[in-house]
């Protein structure tokens, strides 16, 4: 069985949270639900910094490399001279690489977010989760 507390005020919520952690409850067993991000709670619970940055980094790097690789591949695939410029003209390709950096960075960040935050949650989509209104909620997982 799990325990659950609900608060109308953030201060009450934080007080209870601190009380629970100080009382020796493993922060991993505590789940909170808030109407907006409450950073103080993260401090209390020692929430891990999100690993999303790796997704973003991977996305941007992929985009950058793919941008240059793709543009260079296409001009080598069917070499067509335009405007007396060399086949591999890096300045224009940089524009493409830059845009792809942002694009893949953005998309992969979003994908990473979905993966890390376990969204979309099929369960919650099919069966709406219990709504707590604008309350601050603490749930403690009990031992089975």
């Amino acid at each position: 069985m799990s325990k659950q507390w609900m608060f109308d005020e953030k201060a009450d919520f934080l007080a209870k949270l601190r009380e629970l952690v100080d009382g020796g409850v493993d922060p991993h067993d505590l789940e909170t639900m808030t109407p907006f991000p409450v950073h103080e709670a993260d401090h209390i619970l020692h929430t891990r910094t999100s690993r999303l940055r790796f997704f973003t980094l991977a996305g941007t790097l992929t985009g950058l490399i793919a941008g240059f690789a793709f543009t260079i591949f296409t001009v080598m695939d069917w070499p067509l001279i335009t405007g007396g410029k060399p086949l591999i003209s890096l300045p224009p390709f940089l524009v493409i690489a830059f845009e792809l950096t942002i694009l893949l960075g953005g998309i992969l960040s979003f994908v990473g977010f979905l993966a890390l935050a376990r969204l979309p949650s099929v369960k919650n989509v099919l069966q709406p989760p219990k709504e707590y209104g604008n309350r601050f909620v603490i749930q403690q997982r009990g031992e089975e």
Binding site: L80, I81, T82, G83, G84, K85
Partner: peptide, 14 residues
């Protein structure tokens, strides 16, 4: 040729 470099689809080229 200034025209060539700006064609997005290589419809004009050298």
């Amino acid at each position: 040729a200034p025209c060539e470099a700006v064609c997005p689809v290589y419809a004009t080229y050298h």
